[in-house]
Design a protein around this nucleic acid. Structure first.
Length: 550
RNA sequence: GCGCCGGUAGCUCAGUGGAUAGAGCGUCGGCCUCCGGAGCCGAAGGUCGCAGGUUCGAAUCCUGUCCGGCGCGCCA
């Protein structure tokens, strides 16, 4: 489905071409990029373009004259008027009859309204959370979980095929460390200084089956098998916590499998063939500095063991082998130092660096009672994700993280969030949805059915028109959010839709006891239903429930 | 020292080349014979960290600078 804005963009581009062919415009170069936007002020129309200003340098005449030439050649269904405003904006106003007629289009599309059909759907891999299974997910992991999930939903809505992936480390020294901590608790001792001190370790020690314990005693170092056992249990719980947030993954990949399945070896062989590996100080190095990294990086230590970065390289090869067009990594801001070497590796392996993106999620400072809450798994001092959700709820948390840019640091005051959760904008949007559902229920009781067949002539009130124009923007909002890899446009759209619905509700009585109002009631009911649908679709993009009553 | 990300209203944050910079919360003032008041209308509140520059046009791009967070390992 072409979006309203893309149709306008095409129409303007055609008008420019026609004007040039007809001699109204003389272009000394290519047509520059121009935009179609929704102006902030109503007197500037429903949509506006800066095309004339952008063309001025290549057309060598004033933007106002260019705007005249373009608008004289422009024709598009649904546009009622075009006006030209200094210094050269062309403002478009939609035809009210056409607008009213779109209610039926929205209702026909149903759950698919807003979804964008892309000419070339991309196969995308989105890797996120990827917290090591050495302890429960903390509120610190929450942001990445929500951002990754929301982004995945938005990318799917924009017509792409998304694989959600979780990468976890099951072979590092931390696993042994975890095992040693569980053993200490099992034997009633204090955990080692550098071990894991959280309460959950005591729980694991209690759950440890006799059989696993006995088998581990046969091992050269029991901390390894016990560590693996504990790590598996923790991973299962992480999966359950995430499912509770509505976050699920298609693929779980372990670091160990990249080694055992030969991906690390394949990656290294490829780098060696291409001449990007060398030996020094007994270790094997990758020439990442040739691709803009600060310095070269070790891939095999002098003891022969591969580094974590070696796994990253193998993982790049493994991911692309699955046929993805693009890889998106969602990492914490503390990993920004490793982006350069990974980008270098992608390039050295022969992949197009434009096909791999790293989105860095800024830190969340969690504050409780005015003091920063410590978030260390080692010390055992942290707020778990499950605790956070008990306090503020999944919908409010999704809204909170989805409304903010991913690269902006956030102070999150848990007490404040609890206090404010009743005032949270998410409830305002859900309330609008519940109200629309309520009106539809009341109508059904009175045997009034939505009917959009006469909407074109009946839905002309400014509040009705403003609401429909808003509903029509959803596909464009989704397109922008997907292109920017930022989701915060979606909650804002939902809020504005709810606000315009409230104004419509105030100004336009839907249900009436007077039989003479039957046709207008039916038409307005169709608009209520279309609004309910759009709010439902918008909330679905955020993974937030759309209740029929509250 | 070098690198990455930030600095916008009292608070939390949108806005990354367009027209008079926005929202929520908070503050102040109005509005319920009516389909859900978790509402509606209005007001106060901003040198967009600072200084230069580019542009028809800068919160947005460039340079410098100040402040804050994070990172600079043969850890993961």
């Amino acid at each position: 489905m072409a979006t309203l804005r893309s149709s306008l963009h095409d129409a303007v581009a055609n008008a420019i071409r026609n004007a040039a062919e007809a001699g109204d415009l003389t272009l000394a170069g290519d047509v520059p990029a121009f935009s179609i936007e929704r102006p902030a002020r109503p007197e500037h129309g429903d949509y506006a373009t800066n095309a004339a200003m952008q063309l001025a340098p290549v057309a060598r005449t004033s933007p106002m004259r260019i705007a005249e030439a373009i608008s004289g050649r422009l024709a598009l269904d649904g546009i009622a008027t075009m006006t030209i405003a200094p210094p050269g904006f062309i403002n478009f106003t939609l035809d009210p009859a056409w607008v009213a007629g779109q209610v039926a289009v929205i209702l026909d599309a149903g759950d698919d309204f807003g979804r964008v059909a892309t000419d070339a759907p991309a196969k995308l891999n989105v890797e996120f959370v990827s917290a090591n299974p050495t302890g429960p997910l903390t509120v610190g992991n929450a942001r990445g979980a929500f951002v990754g999930d929301l982004l995945s939903r938005v990318l799917e809505g924009a017509g792409h095929e998304v694989t959600r992936e979780y990468y976890f480390n099951d072979s590092g020294a931390q696993v042994r460390n975890l095992g040693a901590s569980v053993i200490a608790r099992h034997e009633g001792r204090d955990v080692p200084e550098d071990g894991y001190h959280g309460e959950y370790v005591i729980g694991l020690a209690k759950e440890l089956p006799e059989q696993a314990w006995d088998e581990a005693q046969q091992a050269e170092d029991p901390a390894w098998p016990i560590g693996h056992w504990a790590s598996d249990r923790i991973r299962e719980r992480i999966e359950a916590s995430l499912a509770h947030l509505g976050v699920t993954f298609d693929v779980w990949t372990s670091e160990g499998s990249l080694h055992s399945d030969g991906w690390v070896d394949r990656g290294m062989a490829r780098l060696r063939e291409r001449g990007y590996l060398y030996e020094a100080d007994g270790a094997t190095w990758f020439k990442s500095s040739e691709f803009g990294d600060d310095k070269d990086r070790v891939v095999y230590r002098s003891n022969g063991e591969p580094t974590y970065f070696a796994s990253d390289i193998g993982y790049l090869v493994e991911k692309f082998s699955r046929g993805f067009d693009e890889l998106i990594y969602i990492w914490g801001a503390d990993h920004h130092g490793t982006v350069a070497r990974n980008r270098a590796a992608a390039q050295a392996l022969g992949f197009d660096p434009a096909d791999v993106q790293w989105l860095l999620i800024a830190w969340v400072r969690f504050v409780r009672d005015g003091q920063e809450a410590s978030m260390s798994k080692r010390s055992g001092e942290f707020v778990t994700l499950d605790e956070l959700l008990e306090e503020i709820g999944v919908d409010a948390a999704r809204w909170f993280f989805g409304s903010r840019g991913a690269s902006v640091g956030i102070d999150f005051d848990i007490e404040l969030a609890k206090k404010q959760s009743n005032e949270n904008p998410v409830y305002y949007v859900q309330y609008a949805h519940a109200r629309s559902a309520s009106i539809l229920r009341n109508a059904a009781e009175r045997s009034i059915a939505p009917d959009s067949s006469r909407a074109v002539e009946l839905l002309r009130h400014p509040a009705e028109q403003a609401l429909i124009r808003q509903l029509l923007a959803l596909p464009d909002v989704l397109t922008d959010a997907a292109a920017r890899r930022e989701t915060q446009d979606v909650p804002r759209f939902c809020y504005e839709t709810a606000s315009l619905f409230s104004q419509f509700y105030r100004d336009c009585r839907v249900l009436s006891d007077d039989p003479a109002d039957a046709t207008i009631s039916a038409a307005r009911l169709a608009l209520v239903d279309a609004t309910r649908q759009v709010l439902h679709n918008g909330l679905a993009l955020l993974g937030i429930s759309a209740p029929a009553s509250m």
